[in-house]
Simulated scan of single mutants.
Amino acid sequence: MHSVTLNSENRAEIAAALAGERWIVACLCAAWCGTCATYRATFEELAARHPDKLFVWIDIEDHADVVGDLDVDNFPTLLLQHHELVAFFGTMLPDAALAHRLIQAKSALSDAELAELAVSSEERRQWQADCNLRTLMRNAQA
Protein backbone atom coordinates (compact mmCIF):
# COMPACT_ATOMS: atom_id res chain seq x y z
CA MET A 1 0.00 0.00 0.00
CA HIS A 2 1.19 3.49 -0.78
CA SER A 3 0.70 6.64 1.20
CA VAL A 4 -2.44 8.73 1.04
CA THR A 5 -2.42 12.48 0.69
CA LEU A 6 -4.88 14.41 2.81
CA ASN A 7 -7.14 16.53 0.65
CA SER A 8 -10.56 18.11 0.97
CA GLU A 9 -12.29 15.15 -0.69
CA ASN A 10 -10.84 12.36 1.48
CA ARG A 11 -10.91 13.83 4.98
CA ALA A 12 -13.69 11.56 6.24
CA GLU A 13 -11.98 8.50 4.73
CA ILE A 14 -8.64 9.38 6.33
CA ALA A 15 -10.30 10.19 9.67
CA ALA A 16 -11.89 6.72 9.60
CA ALA A 17 -8.56 5.10 8.72
CA LEU A 18 -6.84 6.97 11.55
CA ALA A 19 -9.36 5.50 13.98
CA GLY A 20 -8.29 1.97 13.02
CA GLU A 21 -5.75 -0.31 14.63
CA ARG A 22 -2.83 0.42 12.31
CA TRP A 23 0.18 2.52 13.14
CA ILE A 24 0.00 6.02 11.68
CA VAL A 25 3.04 7.51 9.98
CA ALA A 26 2.33 11.08 8.91
CA CYS A 27 4.64 13.39 7.03
CA LEU A 28 3.94 17.06 7.67
CA CYS A 29 5.24 19.14 4.82
CA ALA A 30 4.67 22.19 2.66
CA ALA A 31 4.26 22.37 -1.12
CA TRP A 32 6.93 25.06 -1.45
CA CYS A 33 9.55 22.99 0.41
CA GLY A 34 12.12 21.49 -1.95
CA THR A 35 13.29 19.00 0.69
CA CYS A 36 9.71 17.78 1.11
CA ALA A 37 9.33 17.35 -2.64
CA THR A 38 12.49 15.26 -2.68
CA TYR A 39 11.38 13.32 0.43
CA ARG A 40 8.07 12.32 -1.18
CA ALA A 41 9.69 9.40 -3.05
CA THR A 42 11.37 8.26 0.18
CA PHE A 43 8.03 8.41 2.00
CA GLU A 44 6.46 6.23 -0.73
CA GLU A 45 9.35 3.78 -0.39
CA LEU A 46 8.77 3.62 3.37
CA ALA A 47 5.05 3.03 2.83
CA ALA A 48 5.87 0.12 0.52
CA ARG A 49 8.25 -1.33 3.14
CA HIS A 50 5.60 -1.04 5.88
CA PRO A 51 2.29 -2.01 4.25
CA ASP A 52 0.72 -2.71 7.66
CA LYS A 53 0.92 0.98 8.60
CA LEU A 54 -1.10 3.96 7.41
CA PHE A 55 1.13 6.55 5.72
CA VAL A 56 -0.43 10.01 5.38
CA TRP A 57 1.08 13.00 3.59
CA ILE A 58 -0.24 16.30 4.99
CA ASP A 59 0.49 19.74 3.60
CA ILE A 60 0.37 21.88 6.74
CA GLU A 61 -0.55 25.02 4.84
CA ASP A 62 -3.38 23.46 2.84
CA HIS A 63 -4.72 21.81 6.00
CA ALA A 64 -3.92 24.38 8.66
CA ASP A 65 -7.35 23.75 10.17
CA VAL A 66 -6.16 20.22 11.02
CA VAL A 67 -2.54 20.81 12.04
CA GLY A 68 -2.34 24.58 12.44
CA ASP A 69 -1.41 24.50 16.12
CA LEU A 70 1.38 21.97 15.70
CA ASP A 71 4.83 23.43 16.16
CA VAL A 72 6.53 22.29 12.94
CA ASP A 73 10.06 23.66 13.17
CA ASN A 74 11.46 22.22 9.97
CA PHE A 75 10.62 19.91 7.09
CA PRO A 76 9.96 17.13 6.69
CA THR A 77 8.42 16.42 10.09
CA LEU A 78 7.28 12.89 10.91
CA LEU A 79 4.55 11.95 13.35
CA LEU A 80 4.29 8.31 14.47
CA GLN A 81 1.22 7.30 16.43
CA HIS A 82 -0.41 4.09 17.62
CA HIS A 83 -3.92 4.29 18.95
CA GLU A 84 -3.96 7.47 21.06
CA LEU A 85 -0.22 7.48 21.81
CA VAL A 86 2.18 9.67 19.87
CA ALA A 87 5.46 7.76 19.70
CA PHE A 88 7.46 10.34 17.76
CA PHE A 89 7.06 13.90 16.50
CA GLY A 90 9.98 15.70 14.94
CA THR A 91 12.05 16.69 11.98
CA MET A 92 13.43 13.75 10.05
CA LEU A 93 16.49 13.85 7.86
CA PRO A 94 15.50 12.81 4.33
CA ASP A 95 17.13 9.42 4.83
CA ALA A 96 15.04 6.31 4.14
CA ALA A 97 17.23 4.03 6.26
CA LEU A 98 17.00 6.30 9.28
CA ALA A 99 13.22 6.67 9.00
CA HIS A 100 12.84 2.91 8.46
CA ARG A 101 14.81 2.18 11.66
CA LEU A 102 12.75 4.72 13.59
CA ILE A 103 9.48 3.17 12.39
CA GLN A 104 10.71 -0.34 13.17
CA ALA A 105 11.93 0.63 16.65
CA LYS A 106 8.75 2.44 17.67
CA SER A 107 6.37 -0.16 16.24
CA ALA A 108 8.25 -2.94 18.05
CA LEU A 109 7.27 -1.44 21.42
CA SER A 110 4.38 -2.92 23.35
CA ASP A 111 1.41 -0.76 24.29
CA ALA A 112 2.71 -0.64 27.87
CA GLU A 113 6.15 0.47 26.69
CA LEU A 114 4.58 3.13 24.46
CA ALA A 115 2.47 4.41 27.35
CA GLU A 116 5.56 4.63 29.56
CA LEU A 117 7.53 6.38 26.83
CA ALA A 118 4.67 8.84 26.24
CA VAL A 119 5.06 10.31 29.73
CA SER A 120 8.84 9.95 30.06
CA SER A 121 9.62 13.61 29.39
CA GLU A 122 7.89 16.96 29.24
CA GLU A 123 8.36 17.02 25.45
CA ARG A 124 6.69 13.63 25.02
CA ARG A 125 3.84 14.59 27.36
CA GLN A 126 3.35 17.68 25.20
CA TRP A 127 3.20 15.50 22.07
CA GLN A 128 0.30 13.61 23.63
CA ALA A 129 -1.58 16.84 24.27
CA ASP A 130 -0.80 18.65 21.01
CA CYS A 131 0.17 16.16 18.30
CA ASN A 132 -2.46 13.41 18.45
CA LEU A 133 -3.46 13.23 14.79
CA ARG A 134 -6.68 11.36 15.58
CA THR A 135 -7.78 14.19 17.88
CA LEU A 136 -6.69 16.87 15.43
CA MET A 137 -8.74 15.25 12.63
CA ARG A 138 -11.77 14.83 14.89
CA ASN A 139 -11.59 18.48 15.89
CA ALA A 140 -11.25 19.61 12.27
CA GLN A 141 -14.27 17.49 11.27
CA ALA A 142 -16.47 18.98 14.03
Rank of each mutant, 00 (worst) to 15 (best):
A97R: 15
I60Y: 11
A140I: 09
A87H: 10
H83F: 01
C131R: 15
Q104K: 10
E45A: 08
A142Q: 13
T38V: 13
G34H: 04
K53P: 02
S8A: 11
M137C: 15
A48G: 03
A31F: 01
V86D: 03
G90T: 07
H63E: 08
S110P: 05
F75V: 04
L80G: 03
I24R: 10
W23S: 00
H82T: 04
L70D: 12
L78I: 15
H63D: 10
Q128D: 07
L102Y: 07
L114D: 00
F43T: 09
E9D: 03
C33R: 14
F88L: 01
C36R: 07
E61A: 03
E45Q: 11
D95F: 08
M137E: 11
D73R: 13
L114M: 08
V72S: 12
I103Q: 07
A19W: 13
F75A: 06
A112D: 05
V56K: 02
A142E: 10
L6Q: 11
Q104R: 10
L133Y: 04
F43I: 10
A96R: 14
A37T: 09
W57M: 13
A17T: 06
A97K: 15
P51W: 07
E113M: 00
F88T: 00
A105C: 06
A118G: 04
D73A: 02
F89C: 08
L136V: 15
E123K: 14
A140R: 07
K53L: 02
A105H: 12
D62F: 05
D111C: 02
S8Q: 14
N139W: 05
E113V: 00
A41W: 12
S8W: 15
A47K: 04
